[in-house]
Amino acid sequence: MNREQFYATMAGKGTLDYEIYLNTQTLLSCQKDFDDFCNQDELQFQIVHQSEELWMKLIAYTLLNIDEYIQDEKTNLVLTLFNRVHRIQKILIDQLPILETMSPKDYQEIRANLGNGSGQESPGFRTLMKMYKPLWQSFKTCYLDRHQLNLEQIYNTEYSHCDAYMVAESLAEYDELFQKFRYYHIQLIYRTIGMGANSLKGRSVELLREGMQSKFFPELWEIRHKMTNNWGKEYGQIRDSLGQNLETSQQEKVMVEV
C-alpha cells in the first residue's frame, strides 16, 4: 500500500459537516507528523494518553453536574450520571493494556522525547484529585446532615436501600474504579521500565504506590470493617469449621442408629 496516499486519507479534507463539527483537522493534527515519529509505537503512545485526557475532561465535567444534583437531592440524575462516569472509568482501565503491546526498548526511544514529563502533570488527573473533597462535602451536607443521618444508620441500623445509601455506593464505586486505574497504571510502569527505576523527575516509581494506599472517601470503607467487626461479635469471630460440625453431626447420627 502507498503510505502517503493513506496518510492523506486519514487526515481528511475538513470540509464535510462531520469533520467541521468534530474539528477533525485540529484533532488529527494533535499527534506528531507521521515522518516525525521516533518509532512505530509513538503514535499509539500519544493517542492513548491524549484520549485519557479527553475522558478525564468528561469525567470532571460530569462530576460538576453530579455535585449540583447532589445539592438539590436529585438522586435519579445523580445515579444516572455516576453510571456514565463509572463506564468511562472502565474504558480508561481497559485501554491501558494497549500500551503493553509496546516493548520496553521501544518505549525508551519514546521516553527520550518526553523531557521531564510525568503522568502526575496530567491536567485531567490533577483536576480529579481536587474534586473528591467538595463532592464528599456536598453528599455529607445534603444526604446525611440535612436528614440527621450518618453512615452507620444508612448502611446498618436503618438500612433500607434509601437514596443516601445509593449515592454513597456510587461514590464508593467511583473511588474503587479510580484506585483500580492507578493500580493498573503502576503495573504498566513495572512492565515497561521496571520496579526499581526512577521517573523522569528522578523519583522512584515506588512512590506511586503511596497513592494507592489512600482512598477518596475513607469513611465509606471504614464503615464496612466497623460493621463486620460488630457483626463478628454477634456470631463469633472464631467458630468451629463446617467440616468439624459435619463430623459431629454424623457421629450423633450413628449413635442414634445404634
Rank of each mutant, 00 (worst) to 15 (best):
M1Q: 10
N2W: 04
E4N: 03
A8M: 09
A8K: 13
T9S: 07
D17I: 15
Y21G: 08
S29P: 02
C30P: 00
C30M: 03
D35W: 15
D41R: 13
E42M: 12
Q44A: 15
I47P: 00
S51M: 13
A60G: 03
Y61L: 11
Y61V: 03
T62C: 07
N76L: 14
L81M: 00
N83W: 06
R87W: 09
L96D: 07
T101F: 13
D106Y: 14
D106A: 15
G117L: 09
Q120D: 01
Q120L: 14
P123D: 08
F125K: 11
T127S: 02
L128M: 02
Y132Q: 01
P134H: 06
W136Q: 07
T141Q: 01
Q148N: 06
C162P: 03
V167F: 06
Y174P: 00
L177F: 06
F181Y: 08
L188M: 14
I189C: 09
T192F: 09
G194C: 02
G196V: 05
G196Y: 09
A197G: 02
L200S: 04
K201G: 06
K201D: 08
V205S: 10
V205P: 00
V205I: 00
L208C: 09
K215W: 09
F216R: 02
E219H: 13
E219W: 02
E219N: 07
W221V: 04
E222D: 06
I223L: 04
K226W: 10
K226L: 08
T228I: 14
T228H: 04
T228R: 12
Y235N: 00
G236T: 01
I238M: 13
D240M: 11
G243I: 13
T248Q: 06
Q250L: 13
E252V: 03
V254A: 05
V258Q: 11
